[in-house]
């Protein structure tokens, strides 16, 4: 897909101490490097290799992804709501591209 567009589903509000689930999805072929094209030449690897999540600039969760992750990678995880602010989601592509999405959360 020409344009990479991340999707993030996170609650806008949470109670103090509540454990919230966050779901993320990004469109990416996750070319494994194991495949060959129609003329038999290997197709070079190009995957999202890293996914970072920060709350107010402080890293709270991250994943190293390998070629075994399916196309259009989906990652769901949890956070304990203890602080309002901005959640920043960052996907790192093998080609150096970085895709980012931000969601605000209000903890009361």
């Amino acid at each position: 897909m020409a344009k990479i567009r991340p999707r993030v589903k996170a609650p806008k509000k949470a109670a103090m101490g509540e454990i919230i689930e966050i779901k993320t999805l990004i469109n990416h072929a996750m070319e494994s490097g194991q495949r060959k094209d129609s003329s038999g030449n290997p197709i070079p690897r190009r995957i999202i290799n890293r996914f970072d999540v920060a709350l107010n600039g402080r890293q709270v969760f991250s994943v190293d992804l390998f070629p075994s992750i399916s196309a259009n990678p989906y990652v769901a995880f949890f956070l304990k709501a203890e602080e309002s602010g901005d959640l920043t989601f960052t996907w790192h592509d093998d080609d150096g591209s970085v895709y980012e999405e931000t969601k605000s959360i209000e903890v009361a």
Binding site: M1, K3, R5, R7, K9, K23, L25, I26, N27, Y74
Partner: peptide, 12 residues
């Protein structure tokens, strides 16, 4: 709808 990867296309 969020787990469904097709929604990436739907937004497009």
């Amino acid at each position: 709808d969020f787990q469904n990867p097709a929604f990436l296309w739907l937004e497009r």
